[in-house]
Design a protein around this nucleic acid. Structure first.
Lengths: 233, 233
DNA sequence: GAAGGCCTTCACACTTTCTTCAAATATGAA
DNA sequence: TTCATATTTGAAGAAAGTGTGAAGGCCTTC
């Protein structure tokens, strides 16, 4: 493993080509990278300390979810989960398995590196959660939970991901095109306005009045943006 | 080569069919596209600057890898490599040589375009904004927001584009023809003076007195120009 | 194999914006 | 100053974008 000035990262991924490309990107960005092709190897390697773990949920010998909870039991290391856009994602939600972030496959390697950097930057914060407007809206990624004025909401995986994507960059307009890529995956070939339907459903859950949305605003001709004052965590 | 509002892309690919379909998709998405059928042509074309390069690793006259390193030596331009499915090894090698992403043939044009966009989005400055006359007028592209003395204004998409186009080159006169092309698109077939109507509406929003515009001046017989001292941001 | 959850698509109503036009006003040249 | 040409403006129909409910498909669970 190369030295890694910026930190040590463990990739747990059985698809060699994905692991390789990810490694190349991370190393180019100054990270040290170790790679495990299966859960067993990962557990061995985990005797060393890592600064962040990238974990594919689909592994040959062990359920990624189990590995995730296992890691989380022993440490607070940030975990970014890779999921194929399918039923996997639902399990992320169902189990609330304590990952700090998740990225939909196929992903842009640059996107992944950006997220790795983002997580390490806020490494001091115990967990990756967002809170807006004096606690009116709270998003806890590890628990995969959203609360509005304390009340837990039930969001579908796609709704959650849209909300997360928008709220990570308050005020910034995201086009439907961008949202499709980030939320549904770069290989999504469907109808772009599917996003509208999800936004509608999302608004009905998080907004007081979905006709006059306070959080997710429409930007005519462009897309959507999230409005909210981030709170201290 | 078509103008390309979103950026200029060079396709280096000897299979004409693939090059053509890729070009069509990219152009439809607003890119300008140049095409080289072999390495030699590519090197000639590379005297121009491109925003991204799509490079087939299998070329008639030169090793794609060599071309890749060659390009990377001179510039940071994002490179997406196309590889045939069989050539497993080439992928990683290509990435080691400084490519930014790879796509396996046969590929979905849509996915390729999505990746192109993803790379360019990362390359671009995260958020650029313009500020004029000591903060009197601020334009934030990422937020798609314009503020006049701190007050947010509601501009339509076209108004926003006109303002942005003009303000990016303060003092420069832009003809209606130029504005139509840049703002309404090269394929706009309507009445050139539509711009006037938009400028009118824009002035009513951003000017104190739309009869004596301070920002958007008319240049009689020519077009419009934006006046403003850019502030440090 | 029925039920339920989720995603996607579609059609239609609705909202916002764009384009065009014609009248009014302004400009520059003779 | 006068004339021909340019520009501004308000209004209105045309066009484009968005919200929404419902239907169908796929998958998982019971």
């Amino acid at each position: 493993m190369s030295p890694g000035k910026k930190g040590k990262i463990l990739i747990v991924e059985d698809e060699k080509k994905i692991a390789d490309i990810t490694r190349v990107y991370l190393e180019r960005d100054g990270f040290g990278v170790a790679h495990a092709e299966d859960g067993e190897t990962a557990i061995k390697l985990l005797k060393d300390k890592f600064d962040l773990i990238i974990l594919d949920l689909m592994l040959p010998d062990i359920q990624g979810e189990d590995l995730c909870t296992m890691i989380r039991k022993d440490s607070e290391v940030p975990i970014i989960v890779l999921t194929a856009k399918s039923a996997e994602e639902e399990r992320v939600k169902g189990l609330g398995l304590g990952a700090d972030d998740y990225v939909v496959k196929p992903f842009s390697p640059r996107e992944l590196v950006a997220r790795v950097n983002a997580h390490l930057r806020r490494t001091k914060k115990a967990s990756f959660s967002l809170s807006f407007n004096g606690g009116d809206l709270k998003i806890d990624v590890q628990k995969h939970e959203v609360r509005k004025k304390g009340e837990p909401l039930t969001l579908t995986p796609t709704e959650f991901k849209i909300l997360l994507t928008l709220s990570e960059r308050p005020e910034a307009v995201m086009t439907r095109y961008q949202l499709v890529n980030l939320v549904l995956g770069y290989d999504f070939e469907g109808y772009e306005r599917t996003i509208d339907a999800h936004v509608k459903n999302l608004r009905q859950k998080i907004e007081d009045n979905s006709r006059e949305p306070a959080f997710i605003k429409t930007v005519y001709g462009l897309g959507y943006k999230f409005i909210g004052r981030g709170d201290e965590d």
